[in-house]
Design a protein around this nucleic acid. Structure first.
Lengths: 178, 178
DNA sequence: GTCTATACGTGGATAGAC
DNA sequence: GTCTATCCACGTATAGAC
């Protein structure tokens, strides 16, 4: 999927690359849809990277938020194919009622990471937020998702980094230092 | 495409709903890809709604930006299918080198609208921005795109409106009143 | 369990009558 | 120009031998 796109992942090609006959597919999975569900369930349980140790008590809000953006951007740029596949699966799920539970996996995975990061930052530096942390995490995650979507299409890394930088500043404005 | 998704737009069904024989398709278009290119060219030239008259000199930056968000949100919620089709076409273009020119149509269309809005707001109210207007428009558009992507999946209108509201506040913080 | 063979539907595209 | 008929490739899924 990462190499050739979700569309190219036919049962024939999957089996071919797995070195088994195509007929074996329906021994392993009831249907192709079942495989997709299993894949998306796995993605939805992607472990959230633990950045607890990277936040030190002396860091400013701006630095804490910048760290979140950096980690996110690293992940995107390290493996753009993965982002693209997640995007493909998301739109696929939006049109297939059997997969609709997974239409927001991309969002959910990163939302959890953002929320965790904001919580750790608050714990370690003693800062608080001027709006509910869930709301801040939600808008931050949505915005980051937008930035990465645009980057996937334009591949303008300079613009993406600048966007995340401005975004970090915007979000940090909602932090209150003790 | 809006009703049943881009995938469902086969040459057969297009001709069926157009009331012509399937063979007529390849008289009108060289290939299905050509039709897609034509469609995306049309989308890319979507007229930017003129909001010049809605901005009055007495409005605060916060109100000006909120107006931008409102207009955007109206468009998304009025016709979610269109947003979804744009998203589908974007990912399609990302995997098809012949369509790669159009992978960022969604972004480009709204970027132009945002930029125009910010310029008009500056002209009518005399305000300026503390960072280059192009950079502010870029990050704002990306963030709005992210919010609408998430909404397409979750259909949580309350969360979306709240996200846009916070976003408006964030962006307005970059305005300097005269 | 894994294979081969095959059924069966659905794509895009073309040929050629009218 | 528009139609019918057809080609051919490829998709998922199943049947049944080994």
């Amino acid at each position: 999927m990462k190499r050739d796109g979700v569309r190219a992942a036919t049962t024939r090609r999957i089996c071919e690359e797995a070195g088994v006959a195509q007929g074996a597919f329906h021994y392993c999975f009831r249907s192709k849809q079942e495989l997709f569900v299993l894949l998306m369930e796995r993605d939805a349980e992607a472990p959230v990277q633990d950045v607890r140790d990277e936040i030190t008590p002396s860091m400013s809000p701006r630095e804490c938020i910048a760290l979140l953006m950096d980690r996110y951007w690293q992940q995107v740029e390290k493996d753009p194919g993965e982002q693209l596949v997640l995007a493909e699966l998301s739109v696929l799920a939006l049109r297939d009622s059997a997969l609709s539970d997974y239409s927001s996996i991309e969002h959910r995975v990163y939302l959890a990471a953002t929320l965790q990061h904001l919580r750790h930052a608050a714990e370690r530096t003693g800062m608080t937020y001027s709006i509910p942390i869930e709301e801040l995490a939600e808008v931050t995650t949505s915005a980051m998702l937008g930035v990465s979507s645009v980057w996937l299409a334009t591949r303008d890394s300079v613009a993406a980094r600048r966007n995340l930088d401005i975004l970090a500043e915007m979000v940090a404005a909602y932090a209150i230092t003790p």
